[in-house]
Amino acid sequence: MRAARAARIVVAASLGVAALVGCADSGSSSGSVIEPTAAPSSAKPTPPAPAPEASQQDKAGAAAFTEYWFALLSYGVQTGEVDKLRAASDAKCTECAEAIGVIQENYNDGGSLQGGVYTVREANTIEDFAGQVMTVAVSFDRSPRDGTSPLGQPRGRLDGKSFADCDVRVLWTSAGWKVRGVDSVEQLI
């Protein structure tokens, strides 16, 4: 009895596979073929994560954290979300506060920013003050940035920049690194 039951299962499975193979005949012109479509490109960016080195209290950690801070700045410009950027910035950092202010001014009323993405080319720690405060020399690119009102009207443009330089001071705290200040001849944001 078991052998007969097993034989029926094998036959049923074989018929099912044969039916599926028959449906998959690509030479048939009677059915329509549905091609997969690309996902919409309006997907919201994901918040950046710091590299593991960014939690180290050394020169490599300071440089890695500085790169992370620029990634948070780009994320804030793209999304209007500044909580992580604020958390990575010291309360005494005036340049950080200005950057956060520009982002909030453009998003809080329903407007937005387009572009303004930062790409760090190089980040090298050039000064180390007892492991507590370090200066990181940064070379970066910034894509052009445009602001748009809630009604779609243009409201300001910041030209892109290649090979811009700045010095970023980072401070080691009980919570890890924080940006204490940014010295730049070029407009940061």
Rank of each mutant, 00 (worst) to 15 (best):
P150Y: 06
R121Q: 14
T94M: 04
T94E: 13
V77K: 07
S55G: 13
S143M: 03
Q56V: 06
F140N: 03
S149L: 08
N108R: 11
E127M: 09
A18L: 13
V102W: 07
A123K: 02
C166H: 06
A18N: 00
D83G: 11
Q132N: 14
V77N: 13
R180C: 00
G16E: 00
A91P: 05
F129Q: 14
A19C: 09
D141G: 11
Y107W: 11
F65R: 01
L73K: 13
V117N: 10
A24F: 12
E186K: 06
T148W: 12
R8Q: 09
V117Q: 11
D141A: 09
L15K: 01
V136C: 12
P154I: 02
D141M: 05
V136R: 05
I9P: 00
Q153D: 15
L158K: 10
I34L: 14
A12D: 01
V182F: 02
P154Y: 05
V138I: 12
S29M: 04
S184Y: 11
M1N: 04
L171W: 09
T79V: 07
Y75K: 04
N106S: 12
S112H: 02
A130F: 14
I34H: 13
E67H: 05
W177R: 10
S112D: 03
S41D: 12
A12K: 00
I9T: 09
K161G: 15
